[in-house]
């Protein structure tokens, strides 16, 4: 399982565990599964999807994603919960 947190300046929008993360990187979508190597990626505009049980979606614009030891952190100035 991946520990995921979605962080905006005003609040932590999501914190929990999911099986996968699909994030809109600056040059296209990028998928993260358990055991991913440490990664730091710039994000572009698009939909962030947290797979597995929760299946949450967020619209993000800019910011970055950090993956380190199964800990995924999405830090962005603009993030809103999508349907």
């Amino acid at each position: 399982m991946l520990k995921v947190s979605v962080i905006s300046p005003e609040a932590v929008l999501f914190q929990g565990e999911t099986e996968s993360v699909i994030a809109p990187a600056y040059d296209g979508e990028i998928g993260i599964l358990t055991g991913h190597a440490p990664l730091m990626a710039l994000l572009g505009d698009g939909e962030l999807r947290l797979g597995g049980g929760s299946g949450r979606r967020f619209n993000v614009s800019g910011g970055f994603m950090q993956v380190l030891n199964n800990d995924v952190r999405i830090v962005t100035e603009k993030a809103t919960v999508a349907g």
Partner: peptide
Amino acid sequence: DYILMPSAEVILTQLLPL
């Protein structure tokens, strides 16, 4: 030891104003 996408330089350029 991160995989950097695209590079430390570009990421920092984006993040510093943030």
